[in-house]
């Protein structure tokens, strides 16, 4: 087990290195004149030159990259070029906000998606068709449209929730709920659709297996067959989908956070990428890639937990 984790972590480090190198290269190629971008229309050309020199933008690509890498390895990601805030501080103060959204979404998705999938698989008929249609819809409608609809209905017209902003859970739990409920629903609908469809399909497939018939013939109750045996087998693929969803949700959160003006990673991700704020973008790339690596390791361990065949000895 420990060996497995170590191997995975090593692979993760290599992945991080590859991803950050590629990201740095892409940023370098697409950056344009960042110093002018930072200073705006009022600055003179001399000021722009000075800033280029100060930020090391006149250095060759490799010098700059290794400079960044040397800092990054020691945990020094520098400071944002546009707000002067240290990158680590910028990310840590916002990561928890985004993660609370994403984890809330994943939890909601796992519960509602599984329930819907199982229900459809068991009832079949009209219930099944309804779930299928709803999941296609949920899949097809982009999260940001759902977000805009939710804000208009529940925040602006019914005034049940706050239209924008974020209240930390420590300040007020109800305040926190009033700010995260709509974003989580907006994010979850697409994910629930995917999970429900996946669970439904796997449960139906598993129910057709010979061993299920054997279990039934031994007199096990239908509930016991379903929850103890079938769902466990069907859970593997669903978990894999959920893992992919988690990563996708980090991207989805970027847009939803913009719409709700939530101070998570989303606003700085879009701003820093658009502006060419290389230190901040690189910090975000590393953190996101690390998250992906960690989530995948966790999912694989969970997978073994559900399915002894996949268990790592």
């Amino acid at each position: 087990m420990l060996r497995f984790i170590l191997r995975r972590l090593l692979a993760g480090v290599i992945l991080l290195f590859a991803v950050s190198s590629l990201a740095y290269l892409l940023l370098y190629l697409g950056a344009g004149d960042i110093a002018r971008q930072i200073l705006g229309q009022e600055a003179t050309q001399e000021q722009v030159q000075q800033l280029n020199t100060r930020l090391g933008l006149d250095q060759p690509l490799l010098t700059r990259y290794f400079g960044w890498l040397a800092g990054a390895v020691t945990g020094d990601f520098g400071a944002s070029w546009f707000t002067n805030q240290p990158v680590i501080a910028a990310i840590t103060s916002r990561l928890a906000v985004t993660l609370s959204l994403v984890i809330g979404t994943v939890t909601l998705t796992a519960i509602v998606g599984t329930a819907l999938g199982v229900w459809a698989a068991r009832k079949r008929g009209a219930a099944d068709r309804t779930v299928q249609i709803v999941s296609v819809l949920g899949f097809a409608i982009p999260g940001f449209l759902i977000a805009i609809f939710l804000v208009n209905l529940f925040a602006l017209n019914l005034k049940l929730f706050r239209p924008t902003g974020y209240i930390p859970i420590g300040t007020s739990f109800t305040g926190w709920l009033s700010t995260v409920t709509l974003p989580i629903i907006a994010l979850a609908i697409g994910a629930i659709a995917a999970i429900a469809a996946q669970v439904r399909g796997s449960v139906i497939d598993t129910m057709r297996q010979d061993w299920v018939r054997t279990l039934r013939s031994r007199g096990l109750s239908e509930n016991r067959v379903l929850y103890k045996h079938v769902l466990r087998n069907a859970g593997g693929p669903a978990l894999a989908v959920l893992a992919v969803q988690f990563v996708g949700l980090l991207g989805g959160a970027v847009i939803v956070e913009q719409i709700f003006a939530i101070p998570g990673l989303g606003p700085i991700a879009t701003q820093s990428t658009g502006q060419g704020d290389i230190p901040l973008v690189m910090g975000l790339v590393v953190v996101t890639a690390a998250l992906v690596v960690v989530v995948n390791i966790v999912i694989e361990i969970l997978h073994g937990f559900l399915n002894p065949k996949a268990r790592i000895s």
Binding site: L99, I103, Y166, G170
Partner: peptide, 25 residues
Amino acid sequence: VALAATLALAGCAAGGGETGGGDGS
């Protein structure tokens, strides 16, 4: 475990209230 993890992270978010978290209110 999943629930505990969620709460723990939400707790982090709350802890962030000291260091960050405007409420737009």
